[in-house]
Amino acid sequence: MIDASGLEVVPTGPSEQPRVLTPHAKELRMLLRRAGVSVTTEEIRQDPIRWTRWVALAYNAVVLLKGPTSYVVAPNGANLVVCHAAAQLATAGSGDVLTGILGYMLSDSSLTGVHGLETVSNTRLMELTACAAVIHGQLGRVTAAQGTVSASRLIDQLPAVMKEFGF
């Protein structure tokens, strides 16, 4: 899983390990530019699946385009749309909390179904990434209902929300 400044150095092309990239629109634009595609953030907002797929292909990765609606796209074009975000999540550190949730899910072999040296399929990466985005959206709503949303307040509420989802 690669997020934030790690996106600035991730190489294009094939990878020996499956990877999930988690950019927001401006970071997606930067990834596209590094892959030789010039596009504006407005063009990304108008056709997010198209441009997220470009990145998924160029970097051979599952890509989560974060935003009010999140898009999870695999290199083969398969995609999931997550309309479960909370507007209050547009705050510093919120994406780091999402990355932590996703990191937990990807590291748990009972969730990935992978043991030993097996590789997690892109389909399973997509499912877990979408699930993390849904949990993150619920976390934002729960936290907002109790006051101001900040990364530390999200983390405080995380155990209760994870429990809602059976974790």
Rank of each mutant, 00 (worst) to 15 (best):
C131D: 06
V39L: 02
P23W: 08
A78M: 09
G137D: 08
A160N: 10
L106Y: 03
E8F: 11
Q17I: 01
M105Q: 11
L139C: 05
R153D: 03
L65C: 08
R45Q: 15
L89D: 02
A132Q: 05
L154Y: 06
P75H: 09
P75K: 09
S152K: 13
A56W: 09
T12Y: 05
V63Q: 03
M162E: 00
M105F: 15
P68M: 14
M30I: 06
V10H: 12
Q88D: 10
S15Q: 07
V20D: 01
V114Q: 07
A86V: 02
R153Q: 09
Q146Y: 04
A132M: 09
H115Y: 10
V142K: 12
V161Y: 02
T112R: 07
V39E: 09
Y59A: 12
K163E: 14
L125T: 01
W54L: 04
G6L: 12
L98N: 01
L89F: 04
V10S: 11
T119G: 07
A35Y: 10
G103A: 10
G95F: 07
A160F: 04
G113Q: 06
A90L: 09
S15W: 04
G67E: 11
Q46V: 00
A145Y: 08
P18T: 03
N79I: 02
T22W: 05
S94M: 08
V73T: 04
T148Y: 05
G77P: 01
V37A: 13
N79G: 00
R45H: 13
L98M: 11
Q17F: 08
H24C: 08
G137V: 03
H136G: 12
N60D: 15
G93M: 01
C83S: 13
G140A: 08
N122C: 08
G36H: 13
Y59C: 12
T119R: 14
Q88C: 12
G103K: 01
I101D: 06
V82K: 03
G137S: 04
C83D: 12
Q146A: 15
S121V: 02
L64D: 12
K163S: 13
A74H: 06
S150L: 04
S109D: 07
V73I: 02
Q88A: 15
R33T: 10
T129P: 02
L64A: 14
A90Y: 00
D108I: 04
R141I: 03
P48N: 00
L64Y: 09
T69Y: 09
A35T: 11
C83E: 14
T40K: 13
E27Q: 11
L65F: 07
L32F: 08
V120L: 14
P48K: 02
E164P: 00
N122K: 00
G6C: 12
T129E: 00
E43F: 04
V73G: 01
R124T: 06
Y59F: 15
Q88Y: 04
E43Y: 01
L7G: 02
V114H: 00
V55C: 14
G140E: 02
A151V: 03
E164D: 14
Y104F: 09
S94A: 15
T123G: 10
L89W: 00
Y104T: 15
P18A: 05
W51Y: 15
E16W: 05
V63S: 00
L106T: 01
V82N: 11
E43V: 07
E8Q: 13
A25S: 14
V20W: 00
V10I: 15
L128E: 09
E127H: 13
T119W: 07
T52F: 05
H115L: 09
V20T: 06
S15V: 07
G166S: 05
K66R: 05
L28N: 10
E43M: 13
L117Q: 11
W54K: 15
